[in-house]
Design a binder for these strands. Structure first.
Lengths: 247, 247
DNA sequence: GGGCGCGAAATTGCATACACTTAATCAAGG
DNA sequence: CCTTGATTAAGTGTATGCAATTTCGCGCCC
C-alpha cells in the first residue's frame, strides 16, 4: 500500500532469488553457514529490517531442512539481529528510533573506550597495522568503491579494538557495530562523507600514537557521534519524503 | 585427581539429580524454558564453569527431546554463557583469567556509563525506586541472607540502568553482569563486604540524586573495581590452596 | 453494518530416526 | 615401550513427520 512496503518487498526479493551459494561440509555446520549467510544479508541490506524470515521458505531456498534453519535463527535472535516470537515467526530486527539512538550512543562510548585503552596499550606491531589501515583509507577517499572502503574501515576499527587489549570489550563493541550497520549503509555512497570521516580518523590515530587517552576517547566519540548525526539526517530525509512510516 | 575435579563433579551432580521442574506449555516454548533454566543454573553455580553439557543427558533430565535442548544451547552459546564447538559438544563458559579481567573492566565502564547517564536523566519515579532499593539493601546488611541480598542488589543496579534511559546500554550492561556472575558468587557470603558495598552504593546514589554525572561515573566505576579486586583476591586464595589449576 | 465466535489453513514447535564427525581403544609395527 | 593406524563407540548434525498454536476467512448474532 505504501512506498515502504514496496521497498521491503523488493529487498526480500533480492535475497530470495539468489541461488544458494551454501558450501556444504567445509568444516562448518549447515546451521553455522546459514547463520553467517543470513547475518551477512541483513548487514548488507539484502534482507531489510522488518522482512519476514519464513523457516520453510529459507529451508527451500538453501536446500536444507528446517532444523539447521531454526538453529541459525535462534542464534541470530540471541545476537539481536533478528526478533523471534513463539509461534509467530522471525523478522529482521527493526529497532525503534529511540532504541537506535541508544545503540549509537552506546557505540560512541564503547568505541571511545577502545580508543582510549588503545592509546595506553597499543603495541608497536598494532601501531603499524593501524597506520597501514589509515593510509589505505586515505588512498581510497576518491576511489569511490563503497564496498571496499567499508571493508577497510572495519579493519581500521578492528585494529583499534585489538589495541585496547580487552577481548570482551572488543567483542561487544563489534557486535554493536554490526547491529547498527544495516542503518548506515547509505553513508558510504557519499563521497564527501569519506573525506570528513578520514579527517576524524586522523585525530583518533594521532591521539592514539601520542598515547593521549582522553584525546583518543574524545576524538573517537566525536567521530561516532558524527556518524550518528549523518544517519539521523538520512533517516529524516527518508521520513520527510514518505519513504518510511515507522519509528 | 585434584580437588578441582571433585568440586566440578559435585556441582554437576547437584544439577543432574534435581527433578525437572519444567513447566510445559505456560506460554513459553520448551526451548525457552530450558534456556532460562540452564542460564539460571549456570549463574547460580549449580553448573560450574567447564562442566560438560551433554545434549542427550539434558534431554533425559528434562524429559524432552534433543531438539529444544539444542536450540537452548545455541542461544546460550550466542549469549556467551556456554561455549559450543561443532561435533564436540558444549561446556559452561570458562573464560581465561585475562578474558575475565577484561569483562570486569568493561563492566566497570558500562555500569559507570549507566550511572552517569542516570544522573542526567533519572525521573522522579525512578528516583524513588532507587532510594527504596538502596534502603532495602541497608536493612539487609546484617540480615545475612546472601540470596535475597543478591536479588535486591540486582534490582538496585537495574534501576540505575532504567534511569539511564538507554535500553540497548541496559541490555549489554545486564548481559555483562550476568556473564560475570558465576565468578563472584562467593562475595555475598562475606558479611563485611556487604557493609562496604553499601557505602560504595551510597556514593553512587548521592551523586545520581545530585545530578553529578562525573561523580556518579567515578563512584560506580570504583564500586565495580572493588568488586573485581575482591574477586581477584578470592581467585588468588583458591589458586594458592591448589583448588584451581586453570587460567 | 460492525463486532464476535468458530473452523480451517498455514506456520512454528517438538519428537524421532538416521548420518556424520570425533576421539578413544586396541593392534601391529618400529 | 612408544608410536601409529584402523576400528568402534559415543555424541553431535540433519532430515522428516506429527502435534500444537496462531491467524485468517466466514458465517452468525447483536
Amino acid at each position: 500500500m505504501t512506498d515502504a512496503d514496496q521497498i521491503d518487498e523488493r529487498a526480500i526479493g533480492i535475497a530470495s532469488e539468489s541461488a544458494p551459494p551454501l558450501v556444504r561440509g567445509s568444516g562448518r555446520t549447515l546451521a553455522e553457514e546459514l547463520r553467517l549467510q543470513l547475518a551477512d544479508e541483513i548487514v548488507r541490506g539484502a534482507l531489510a529490517p522488518g522482512a519476514a524470515l519464513d523457516e520453510t521458505e529459507l529451508a527451500r531456498r538453501f536446500q536444507v531442512s528446517r532444523t539447521p534453519v531454526r538453529e541459525a535463527l535462534r542464534q541470530l535472535a540471541a545476537s539481536g539481529l533478528i526478533e523471534s516470537r513463539a509461534h509467530r515467526g522471525s523478522v529482521v530486527a527493526q529497532p525503534s528510533h529511540e532504541h537506535l539512538i541508544g545503540m549509537f550512543e552506546a557505540m560512541a562510548e564503547l568505541e571511545a573506550l577502545c580508543a582510549g585503552l588503545a592509546a595506553a596499550r597499543i603495541t608497536p606491531v598494532e601501531r603499524k597495522a593501524l597506520a597501514a589501515a589509515h593510509e589505505e583509507l586515505r588512498t581510497m577517499i576518491q576511489s569511490g568503491d563503497p564496498q571496499r572502503y567499508h571493508e577497510i574501515n572495519e579493519a581500521f576499527h578492528s585494529t583499534i579494538y585489538a589495541g585496547a587489549h580487552n577481548s570482551y570489550l572488543a567483542e561487544i563493541t563489534l557486535a554493536t557495530r554490526v547491529r547498527v550497520q544495516p542503518f548506515r549503509r547509505a553513508q558510504f555512497r557519499n563521497l564527501g562523507r569519506l573525506a570528513k570521516s578520514h579527517m576524524e580518523h586522523d585525530l583518533v590515530v594521532t591521539a592514539i600514537m601520542r598515547g593521549d587517552q582522553d584525546g583518543a576517547m574524545r576524538a573517537m566519540r566525536d567521530h561516532i557521534i558524527t556518524v550518528r548525526v549523518e544517519y539521523e539526517m538520512y533517516a529524516l530525509s527518508l521520513s520527510s519524503t514518505g519513504l518510511r512510516d515507522r519509528n
